[in-house]
Design a protein around this nucleic acid. Sequence first.
DNA 1: TCCGCTACCTGTAGAGTGGTAGGTTTCGTT
DNA 2: AACGAAACCTACCACTCTACAGGTAGCGGA
Lengths: 193, 193
Amino acid sequence: MPYGGVMNARVRSGERRAEIVGAALEVIAERGYRGASLAAVAERVGLTQQGLLHYFPTKDALLVAVLQERDRWDAVPDTQWRVDLLASLVEYNAMRPAIIQTFSALLGESVTEGHPARSYFTERYARVRESMATVLRAEYGDRLPNGLTPERTAPLLVAVMDGLQYQWLLDPESVDMPGAFRDFLRLLGEPAA
Amino acid sequence: MPYGGVMNARVRSGERRAEIVGAALEVIAERGYRGASLAAVAERVGLTQQGLLHYFPTKDALLVAVLQERDRWDAVPDTQWRVDLLASLVEYNAMRPAIIQTFSALLGESVTEGHPARSYFTERYARVRESMATVLRAEYGDRLPNGLTPERTAPLLVAVMDGLQYQWLLDPESVDMPGAFRDFLRLLGEPAA
DNA sequence: TCCGCTACCTGTAGAGTGGTAGGTTTCGTT
DNA sequence: AACGAAACCTACCACTCTACAGGTAGCGGA
């Protein structure tokens, strides 16, 4: 009864790949990308390392799939973001430590030389800052405190989210991530819209 | 004329160790801790990997020395911090990408399981938050916007500093780290003291 | 002058690493 | 029933990594 045999209905290729990506997310959360071995990922889905390479020919290819998965995840389609939705997002994140640990670890690694995720994060942050600026403009217009513009506020918003994540991951007991984020939003004053 | 011979005055053990720690900082900046090999550090100071192990018996011991170096670095003795000094610190950091890249990479790695720097960062952030709360209280008292307390503002301050560093490291052209930090300080209003 | 210590070295063990080559089994289709 | 492709496997290569063992050269002090 090799390869799982008759008992397991054969899972389709797409589902298998999704399984693998999920396992990769876990392993990266535990050990980072450089520390994650293909063998460890493979074992988690009941494959050999070489069996895994059948689906993703190189380690980098697997990473690309992981990053694409992330893009799919937070591409809330059409739904125009609002600031209070951001607060909910942070609250939601606080219930999924694993996934945010994965991407916090990746972000940290990505600043090192020649890291395969570097350009991904560079471009992602450029996009996110733009997107946040749009949200802020829609909601606050130019009524931000001290003559701040949405464009200059956006990097701060992103920085607070990321920075809080690290503090929270390191010490969840001491850091109330969603509460702190709401505190920050309150610093921006009341939305005009 | 082995080991450098007469030409190089024999450097004392302490200086040698300092050289090694400096090289380790560089290599960690480039490859992270897990990605940093003892051989790479050794080569940078003209030693073999085994020669390096004479000074630091394990890789973790070297990391400990690196972290201690950092503690020495930002232990501004007695000087009571002030908020505007923080702005200067950020400005200063913006001129030393290497060192902040080292510790941003380490911070990112440290959230992974069983990382040797994890407890260091956990404790460090607890200390820094406390310290920042003290600074904020001294300067703003309870005049922070929206009834924010210094204790609740401190994590935000730290988060902004860290978060901005990542954005800046990834894309220095697009992110004005010191400017953004000053923007954040302005959100806190005018210091009372 | 001898002795011991520091500062290195060579050699090597032992466990992983990503990736290639080339099989064999199983399935869906014809 | 035959066939091609997909889904995995075993075997292996060429590295790389940390660390241990056991040297040797040179210096400072007795």
